[in-house]
Amino acid sequence: MGNQTSAVRILAPVSFIFDFAAQQYGIFSKPNMLDIHNQNIGAFSPNPYFIPAFFAPQQLLQLFWLYKLTRPGATGTATDPERLSAERYAWIYTLGNFCIGTWMFFWNANQLEISNIFVTINTVSHVAYIATQLPPLNANSTLSITTHLVAKTFAGIGVLDLLHNTSAAYYRGVPPSTMVQALTGMGFIGAAALSDTIFGACLAYDLVALAVGQSGSWRKLLGAYALGTAAVIGARRWM
């Protein structure tokens, strides 16, 4: 157990650095990630500027969480179960960062079918973890709060990443069918009904990003879904 703890305290920051470096490559290379986005517009392509708007503060949150996780001999106010929870999640976090960092290279190479493999691994692993493995949040523990924030925001933006990459890879230029439109609403609003405020808010953000990135009646419907998702989150918050 001690060796595993030491390993993840090294691998988690390394994975952050790898992912951050890959994102810089994606921004400054030619073609860059925005160029590939513009070449492969699909029914689930968001407004591209919503991604860095989410990414930037989430990076700061990750840095704070990594500091709490790895600083020598420090436990803060966290109890042992909360620290163990953070260390267990750190393995999923590490996997996610390596997947998203690798995704960037295939995305910028316009090999979207391959990039979709990595984004799928990240999203499925994160959503599965927060749904089945993440213990309840302890509002009295900074480590517990930040673990929940990092895990759930990672999962939340992962949902958008998966929809975006899949539509760009396999359904470029294909409008959403009536069934897809209906399933989108049921999926997001249903997930919000089963989610806490953090993950639910991320789902609403995903829908806003999609609505701003689309046009016509599909844009209006996505906007309505965003309002519906937000309403469900608000209702659950005050129940």
Rank of each mutant, 00 (worst) to 15 (best):
Leu63Glu: 01
Ala7Pro: 02
Asp19Pro: 00
Asn116Trp: 10
Ala151Glu: 15
His164Gln: 13
Gly42Trp: 11
Asp35His: 03
Glu113Ser: 06
Ser217Pro: 06
Ala74Asn: 13
Leu162Pro: 05
Asn122Pro: 01
His148Val: 09
Gln111Arg: 09
Phe118Met: 03
Ile100Trp: 01
Leu221Phe: 12
Phe44Ser: 09
Pro72Asp: 15
Asn40Trp: 15
Gly190Ala: 09
Thr178Asn: 13
Phe64Tyr: 13
Ser45Lys: 12
Ala90His: 06
Leu137Trp: 00
Gly73Cys: 07
Lys30Val: 10
Phe50Asp: 12
Ile189Val: 14
Ala193Gln: 03
Gln181Ser: 10
Thr146Ile: 03
Thr77Tyr: 11
Ala43Gln: 04
Asp206Lys: 15
Trp65Val: 02
Phe199Thr: 04
Phe106Lys: 03
Trp103Gln: 09
Ala182Ile: 13
Leu162Phe: 14
Ile157Gly: 12
Ala169Gln: 03
Thr184Val: 13
Asn40Ala: 13
Ser29Gly: 06
Ile157His: 13
Ser29Phe: 00
Pro31Val: 04
Phe188Met: 09
Val159Met: 15
Val212Ala: 11
Pro57Ser: 08
Thr184His: 10
Arg219Asp: 05
Ala109Asp: 14
Thr197Pro: 00
Ala235Glu: 00
Arg219Asn: 05
Asn108Phe: 04
Ala191Pro: 07
Ala226Gln: 05
Ala151Ile: 13
Met239Thr: 07
